[in-house]
Simulated assay, not measured.
Amino acid sequence: MSSNAQTARLNVLVIVASTRPGRLGPAIADWFVQATLPTAAAGGTTLDIADLADIGLPLLDEPEHPSSGIYVHEHTRAWSRRVAAADAFVVVTPEYNYGMPAVLKNALDFLYHEWAWKPVGFVSYGNTSAGTRSVQMTKQVVTTLKMMPIGATVALRIADSTQDGQVLRSAGLDDTARRMLLELTRVASAMRPLRTEPDSDVTSLPGPVEGLRLTIAQPDDLAELLVLQRCCWVQEALANDTLDLSPLRETLDELRESTSTWQLWCVRRHGRLVAAVRAQTRGRGWLIGRLMVAPDQAGNGIGSWLLSYAEQQAPEGTAHYELFTGHRSTRNIKMYERAGYALTYADVTPDGSVHLVKQRQPTA
């Protein structure tokens, strides 16, 4: 590991996993932060509390699978940004009927890639078992999300460790919290290479399937890109009952020329080119074109994921996104409509295409 990786600051997100009125979670989270703050400061660690009651996620309401990384709702995007920015987690959780709170399971299920390759520690609280059965249940879920539960935990019996809604401070209890944080940050530092993409030209945006590498198209990609384009547009030709489609007529020289006016991105999976897209500014719009996915890779969410990425590359001042597809390409049209695009209902263009537009939402 490089010295930079060893000395880089770590961000630990402390998640309050209860929303019940009169809950102890916020007080316990505050105690944990206060008890470990000197240790965190000495180690260059930032502690941030995420109270699920304040975050207010509804029951999982995203139409796409979390592994796609495609989020329709801003509450999901905000939660994604919060979790993605963290290097490790501390979950402060009670035990409800031998298990974790539903709000915690829901918060975990909203995301997928954002959790991966990060350690998690637990501060549990309860009566007979001090919340440990909630922890055991949660461990089954977080390991599926490629998280690493650490060995050190803090378990508080409510009758012994709290009074009047506050944690009873003691040197021994504070030391237990500090030792857990030290183990958590040590594991987070060791796992950092797993969370860091070593190639600077590769986008780290999590993809819907394993093994995807998204890059800016290079000159050496163009010949293979042209082959993929023709394979993909054969289906479009069949759907629209015409071979008179510009993607089928485009030459390699024309494709090279297009790189002077379009931004192009390629997606490889295990070295093979499986998808691509291009985009350019058109007035106040961001025109997205030639979105393609290899036929044998279709249905895995790659197209929706790549469309979302292309939208995110729009420059400041963009008012809307727009694209064209064949007027009989019903599968494409449905995908675009799910992503928020609407047909303009103008006449079909001379080449048999229809125009779809999506307004860009203002950023906070």
Results as ranks from 00 to 15, higher is better:
residue 185 T to P: 05
residue 197 E to F: 08
residue 221 D to I: 11
residue 183 E to G: 14
residue 241 D to I: 12
residue 170 S to D: 07
residue 182 L to R: 15
residue 235 Q to V: 11
residue 179 R to T: 14
residue 260 S to N: 14
residue 255 L to E: 01
residue 200 S to P: 09
residue 242 T to W: 08
residue 194 L to M: 09
residue 193 P to V: 10
residue 181 L to Q: 02
residue 235 Q to K: 09
residue 259 T to P: 04
residue 299 G to W: 00
residue 266 C to I: 11
residue 176 T to S: 15
residue 202 V to S: 04
residue 212 L to C: 01
residue 299 G to C: 04
residue 220 D to M: 11
residue 281 T to L: 09
residue 232 C to K: 01
residue 284 R to L: 15
residue 289 G to P: 03
residue 220 D to N: 10
residue 275 A to I: 00
residue 200 S to D: 10
residue 274 V to A: 01
residue 257 E to Y: 11
residue 277 V to A: 04
residue 180 M to F: 07
residue 218 Q to E: 12
residue 170 S to H: 04
residue 297 Q to R: 00
residue 232 C to H: 00
residue 197 E to S: 08
residue 216 I to S: 15
residue 172 G to D: 15
residue 227 V to T: 14
residue 230 R to P: 15
residue 282 R to S: 15
residue 198 P to N: 04
residue 259 T to Y: 09
residue 294 A to E: 07
residue 182 L to I: 13
residue 178 R to C: 09
residue 190 A to W: 14
residue 287 L to R: 00
residue 239 A to L: 13
residue 250 E to I: 07
residue 196 T to P: 01
residue 248 L to C: 05
residue 274 V to G: 08
residue 245 L to E: 03
residue 232 C to G: 07
residue 237 A to N: 01
residue 271 G to D: 00
residue 236 E to Y: 09
residue 172 G to H: 10
residue 232 C to I: 03
residue 234 V to A: 13
residue 188 A to P: 02
residue 251 T to D: 05
residue 215 T to F: 02
residue 247 P to S: 03
residue 225 L to A: 13
residue 280 Q to K: 12
residue 178 R to D: 07
residue 172 G to M: 10
residue 198 P to I: 03
residue 248 L to D: 06
residue 233 W to S: 06
residue 232 C to V: 05
residue 181 L to H: 03
residue 203 T to Q: 14
residue 228 L to D: 02
residue 181 L to V: 11
residue 244 D to M: 08
residue 246 S to N: 14
residue 214 L to T: 02
residue 251 T to Q: 00
residue 258 S to N: 01
residue 181 L to S: 11
residue 293 V to T: 06
residue 201 D to S: 14
residue 273 L to K: 05
residue 274 V to S: 06
residue 262 W to I: 06
residue 172 G to C: 13
residue 270 H to Y: 01
residue 289 G to Q: 05
residue 224 E to N: 08
residue 172 G to W: 08
residue 229 Q to C: 13
residue 183 E to S: 09
residue 292 M to D: 05
residue 244 D to A: 04
residue 215 T to D: 11
residue 249 R to G: 08
residue 215 T to G: 06
residue 298 A to W: 06
residue 300 N to S: 13
residue 295 P to M: 00
residue 195 R to N: 14
residue 296 D to L: 04
residue 288 I to E: 00
residue 288 I to P: 03
residue 261 T to R: 14
residue 252 L to Q: 07
residue 233 W to K: 04
residue 236 E to R: 00
residue 202 V to A: 07
residue 221 D to E: 01
residue 221 D to A: 03
